[in-house]
């Protein structure tokens, strides 16, 4: 439950703030995730580019295996985002998964967290399968070839901009309770005020 606050009273009873600022309703995390996926899909690398790069840089004998693994990644992406979404959303999810696992051998806590943050709850078997499929594709290339490709094509949309306040010193020090140490155990009313001193 929210703590009683002076500023709560000011917001409710004085006429100096916008009344509809905060309603206390929980946020719709589903819409947030969709927005995030949408934003991600606009960031540089597309599924088409990944598929093209792979087919262009592999010998014919490896292309078949790579293409099958890319299909697995797409399938698992569909399982993770849900089948109700269109091809565009699924391909964008596949890119996310591909980027996430292209330099990871297995699904760790960070990867699980990143996927849940992006898509919400998901079947873990799909993620394991996706990770393995991405690894099989990457193993067909030189160590950093894929990573470099992704880095070059990732959009640096405002990411290289120095964030405001980066060099501003910030302190986490905050007002804390400033009190007398003891609770006087006295029964005499009259003595209470005598015992209680502001001589800190």
């Amino acid at each position: 439950m929210a703590q009683p606050r002076l500023t709560g009273a000011l917001r409710s009873f004085s006429n100096v703030s916008r009344q509809d600022d905060y309603t206390g309703e929980p946020s719709d995390l589903k819409s947030k995730r969709l927005k995030r996926q949408e934003a991600f899909s606009k960031e540089g690398v597309t599924w088409k580019m990944i598929a093209q790069f792979i087919s262009q840089h592999l010998e014919k004998r490896d292309q078949q295996a790579a293409s099958e693994n890319l299909k697995i990644v797409l399938q698992t992406a569909r399982q993770i985002v849900g089948s109700e979404f269109g091809q565009e959303v699924i391909e964008s999810a596949a890119v996310f998964i591909f980027k996430l696992f292209c330099n990871k051998d297995q699904v760790g806590h960070e990867e699980t967290k990143a996927i849940r943050q992006m898509f919400g709850p998901f079947p873990s078997s799909s993620v394991d399968a996706a990770c393995a499929a991405v690894n099989r594709v990457v193993s067909l290339f030189d160590e950093t070839q894929i990573e470099t490709f992704i880095k070059v094509h990732s959009s640096s949309h405002f990411k290289d901009h120095v964030p405001f306040g980066k060099n501003i010193m910030f302190s986490f020090d905050t007002y804390t309770l400033d009190y007398l140490e003891y609770l006087p155990i006295k029964n005499d009313d009259e003595k209470l005020s005598k015992e209680f001193s502001l001589n800190y």
Binding site: V16, S17, R18, F170, S171
Partner: peptide, 19 residues
């Protein structure tokens, strides 16, 4: 309403001691 009096009071009590 980027700033209003309740917000200013909140900022003071949350950040005033250290900053």
């Amino acid at each position: 309403f980027l700033f209003d009096i309740p917000k200013i009071l909140d900022l003071c009590v949350l950040y005033g001691k250290g900053n």
